[in-house]
């Protein structure tokens, strides 16, 4: 019977599961909202993947859990999402030296060596500025789905500045722009600029070195990607499925342990 390896990334907004075979090749992955119990969601996703691929639970040799929910998930090892992210990114982009990861609750900038070894990192402090949650709140205020934010923002003709880092204050700035008759794309562009500005400061902390990879759920947002690339002055490489790179890294670490 063939061995398989699983990486589980339980974030504040979404849970991700990646399945890797004995050759270290990704076979399947799944993503869903973490909701109330990220652990239950991740277990359900794992089951679904196994059923779909016709794999028995006993064939899972090692599971590595990462993300905020890692502590509660029954896995052989817990590894921080920084190490996992670096590993996952090195798999797709061997030339990556700087990894920018913006997730639901965290933004991180990781400096890596070839092979994905972490040499330094910086994270946002105890504040939602510069994270997916910030974008979510602003999208909510504008009655736009999170998925639409990027596509609308890149159509902006004039960027409406959002100056407050505080999510609550920024939301009231958004509302004032709305009251003043500003267009949604223009306001959203300002929101994306704000996230990018916060993250650029983290980039400066660890020092920028190309290639720069942008990953995490927010990397799907073209508005933030554009603003970030302009602010740091480098093109950004974005994985095809940026949400699952940390889970893939976890699965690859599990594979390495097996």
């Amino acid at each position: 019977m063939e061995d398989f390896f699983v990486g589980v990334d339980i974030g504040s907004l979404t849970a991700k599961v990646v399945l890797v075979d004995a050759q270290g090749q990704a076979l399947a992955w799944a993503v869903d909202r973490s909701g109330y119990s990220g652990r239950d969601v991740a277990q359900r996703l794992t089951q679904e993947i196994l059923e779909e691929k016709g794999i028995k639970v006993e064939q899972i040799k090692v599971t590595v859990a990462t993300g905020y929910g890692r502590v509660t998930y029954p896995a052989e090892r817990e590894v921080s999402e920084i190490t996992c992210q670096a590993k996952g990114i090195a798999h797709f982009f061997p030339g990556a030296r700087t990894v920018i990861d913006i997730g639901g609750q965290d933004s991180k900038v990781i400096k890596v060596l070839p092979g994905g070894k972490v040499i330094d990192f910086a994270m946002n402090d105890k504040c939602a500025a510069g994270t997916g949650r910030f974008l979510e709140v602003m999208a909510g205020a504008l009655e736009v789905s999170l998925e639409e934010v990027g596509a609308l923002a890149v159509k902006a003709e004039e960027h409406k500045a959002i100056s407050s880092f505080c999510t609550v204050f920024a939301e009231s700035e958004v509302i004032s722009h709305v009251s003043a008759g500003a267009l949604k794309p223009d306001i959203l562009a300002g929101v994306c600029d704000s996230v990018a500005a916060r993250v650029s400061a983290l980039v400066e902390r660890v020092g920028l070195e190309p290639d720069v990879v942008f990953t995490g759920g927010v990397a799907k947002n073209a508005g933030v990607a554009k603003a970030l690339s302009e602010q740091i002055g480098y093109p950004l490489l974005i994985p095809e499925n940026p949400q699952i790179t940390a889970a893939l890294g976890a699965a690859l670490l599990a594979w390495g342990m097996g």
Partner: peptide, 22 residues
């Protein structure tokens, strides 16, 4: 009130992972 347990834990674990072999 200025201490965020989970975000501190993530940083500490990641840091020690860079120093100690997995």
């Amino acid at each position: 009130r200025a201490y965020a347990e989970e975000s501190v834990r993530t940083r500490v674990e990641a840091f020690l992972e860079t120093l100690q072999a997995l």
